[in-house]
Write a protein that binds this DNA or RNA. Structure first.
Lengths: 339, 339
DNA sequence: GGCACATTTGAAAGCGCTGTCAAATGGTTT
DNA sequence: AAACCATTTGACAGCGCTTTCAAATGTGCC
């Protein structure tokens, strides 16, 4: 107890929590003792007594996927300066593990929760509601959010990628996908429906794997497509890793990109702009989603506790057209939706 | 309080913590109440009362660098099953921020700490020692660890990369580096000393930036080298991002790899094996370091509390020779050290 | 049937802090 | 000088749990 050092018991707390309620002399005296002893208040005791844990729980589907890096960093960057710690748990793309993670997190009584995706189990939703704290579902959109929601329509994004390639004159458009969370599935559905709408067959043009994606898998999946459908002219990869693998496979086989094969990925990771040729990609605002989630939470739990004006937010996406899909055209977010 | 549900106060705790000390009937009765109420014990109160926080603090220099992804995942995979939560803080490659992160973490009374690198500030070291918990410094080695240490000798690794390229007949070997933490600096020193030892000049062969690295930077840095020293024949990049950027720049300029330029990176990320041609890289055992750190900690705080037989561990490195440095040779970790 | 002993449950105290409220101190006002 | 008020500090209780120890209950033995 640092209190022995100064001479006061509760006063230490006041000096640390409400320095302006205390005289200069006391502040100095306690301050000296604190630094002499390297005293650091026990956050657990403090949280227990004040019922303000200053913890926000975040659950991501993967820790090794570059997609969540900037997202997590954005959340921490927004929350840490406010004195809030972020507890990150990994659900490994499993709803069951996510539910477990939520249970664990609840034991810490977080002041808010940030989740990826919109399909939590019923029990997860119940636990979350029961907790009575702000919950933000990110990366995807839904009509029935648990609480707050920011994301994009992956179905529309998949369809938009197809439209984009189609506008460039492609009709043999392949789709590559890896382990299928709901978002990837929806992108795939968007692809399929848009191909249907164009009257284009997707036979021999879809290749998937149940493993989690990496660059090497992109090469494998694309090779499978080539075997089945040698006259394929364009590839829509459900993420940039697969797109990059496809590009490498083209290089390996001496297939010219974009002249013989056009490639578009998803997420627009940094690396996509640096390849040769640069990879087109459907760009998602991951950092913005993290920032919005964290900022909105801060507003609620700090600022007067009232809900923000906007509780659901479709942040959209944009197609970054680069050389891998031919001549570069400036494009914006698709104007209207698929019927 | 779920206790109202059953009929007991302290007993709930016992049912949950020591189910075998309690009768079947009670266990069932309380169990029912627990699930009926979705009761989850308050971890903060539990930790405060028992002085076992079940928290391990981890501080990494970056959240957006792929290098730390598998490392963090390995730590969580080892610790979570033991009921331990990992609190991850980002020090952004700054010793000062690291010190702040340590202070913050201390407020949570972690049962152990895992750090990256071996140059913490004096105050950091003091706080850590004062905490009296196991501390593991990873990724680098030192003669004066705070407590436990696992890592590799980056100086040797840098020198080994140069020796490797030299053996392939290169003498105009460039070095690319980005923001320079101690480890990157040591790799650079290893490069420089080994070049000196070979009597090779490094004039016009070193290019660096103070920003944090990305793929695009690799292209920029390599371009600078080409401007200064057109007859360069090999590039040692201080990480795989820069190596990949170099490869892309070669592709862009139509420079053949490895015929005109040999490239070797550092860390051996997954993507390096998938490029065309595949990139050689100095492979570091990041996952193993995370696993060892977590495992050793578990042994100490769970298993009888005694120190492991081995408290310092040079895990070494290996050179993954792939086509980007010419004919593929099987190589092991360098046998003897630089004088 | 009475006593020693093992088993199962509860009562009391306290982990380190914070919120509330009362007490002490000092400065003003009439 | 008495009464009043503002400012500053401390006492007390309690956050929700666990630990320790005592009480209650059941079992076996002489």
């Amino acid at each position: 107890m640092a209190r022995r050092a100064g001479v006061s018991p509760v006063t230490v707390s006041r000096v640390i929590r409400h320095p302006d309620m205390v005289s200069d002399a006391l502040r100095k005296r306690v301050g000296d003792a604190v630094s002499a002893l390297n005293y650091i208040p026990n956050h657990l005791a403090s949280a227990l007594a004040s019922t303000r844990t200053q913890i926000v729980g975040v659950i991501v589907p993967s820790l090794t996927n570059g997609v969540f890096d900037e997202y997590l960093a954005a959340i921490q960057d927004a929350l840490n300066p406010a004195g809030i710690q972020v507890l990150v748990l990994n659900a490994r793309y499993s709803e069951v593990e996510e539910e477990k993670a939520i249970e664990t997190l609840m034991g810490y009584h977080p002041e808010a929760m940030i989740l990826v995706g919109v399909d939590q189990t019923e029990r997860s939703r119940q636990l979350l509601r029961q907790a009575g704290v702000p919950v933000v579902q990110t990366m995807d959109i839904t009509d029935s959010p648990i609480d707050l929601n920011i994301g994009l329509d992956h179905y529309e994004a998949g369809a938009a990628a197809v439209r984009f390639l189609h506008e460039q004159g492609h009709s043999k458009i392949a789709y590559l996908t890896g382990r299928t969370d709901r978002r990837a599935v929806r992108r795939g559905t968007g692809y399929q429906r848009q191909m249907d709408a164009f009257g284009l067959s997707t036979k021999g043009l879809v290749s998937g794997s149940s493993r989690s994606t990496d660059v090497a898998m992109g090469a494998e999946l694309f090779s499978q497509i080539l075997d089945q459908t040698p006259n394929v002219t364009a590839v829509f990869a459900c993420n940039d890793d697969l797109a990059l693998g496809t590009l490498f496979e083209c290089q390996r086989r001496g297939i010219s990109v974009p002249d013989e094969i056009a490639i578009i990925g998803f997420n627009d990771l940094d690396v996509s702009a640096a390849t040769v040729p640069p990879l087109s990609s459907v760009s998602t605002e991951r950092q913005e989603m993290g920032t919005w989630a964290a900022g909105t939470i801060l507003e609620i739990i700090r600022g007067s506790g009232k809900r923000p004006k906007q509780t659901s937010f479709d942040i959209g996406f944009s197609i970054k057209a680069r050389e891998s899909t031919g001549a570069v055209v400036v494009r914006a977010k698709p104007a209207k939706r698929l019927a």
